[in-house]
Amino acid sequence: MRFNFVFGLFLVSVVVLAALLAGLLAPFHPIMDADLMSSELPPGAPHWMGTDAQGRDVLSRILYGARVSLMVGVVSQIINSTIGAALGISAGYFGGVWDDFVNGLTNVMLAIPSLVFALAIMAVLGPGLPSLLIALGLTNWSWTCRIARGSTLSLKSQSFVLAAKAAGFSDWNIMRTQILPNIVGPLLVIGTLGIGSAVLAEAALSFLGIGIRPPTPSWGNMLTDARELLRTAPWAAIFPGLAIFVTVLGFNLLGDGLRDMLDPHMRTRRE
């Protein structure tokens, strides 16, 4: 399905543009333009998505919130992919005790739900952006690791790897120049899907009050405030959630689309 890829790419591009151009697009300042005289206004000019309890423009806060969500999603997934790829490739390549150790560690990581693990790390580090990046970056690499390991195992005995070994390449060089380029495809797929889950996890942690702290706008903490306004200002809950939904949907479709393009046999399979 080419459609998945194109539509996913479209949604992701919209969100990325919104984040980059937030300063230009946002009609109001996300924090400073609080005005109690215009609190809980329904959508309409000049507040196209209404205002919250403090009279702040919901649209402007969503645009700035996109920066937080994307940054957390992308950076934490880069950390995850790096850890997963490094562990997976080295485990598959060297085998033996190291492989057993990595396998055991992966099984343990799979047994602790990543949101629960991230929550525990946040409990230690305290709220804030750096803690979020660490908590989400350390807890969701197990699938990447499994896939990297599996692919490395099947590549290890192929002739071009053996040739590189015979030519005197070091182990590090073989892993970097012979194996990694050949597994970039699957890693890219799982990384794209991972950004979606990281965006969801950031929103969940911020919603619980242990992620991004107010007044910095994040889609998750906007929903915390909106919960209290549900009866009088439902728009304050509808739009930030819609933003999360559209972003995650975009990354999921993009990931599915990439997989279909890279590997037609894997179509519609998803762990």
Binding site: A204, A237, G241, F245, V248, L249
Partner: peptide, 16 residues
């Protein structure tokens, strides 16, 4: 695919 992308706590808010 929507069900896998929707934040469940937002869905909860909407249901509420």
């Amino acid at each position: 695919v929507s069900g896998l992308s929707v934040p469940e706590f937002w869905l909860g808010l909407l249901l509420m």
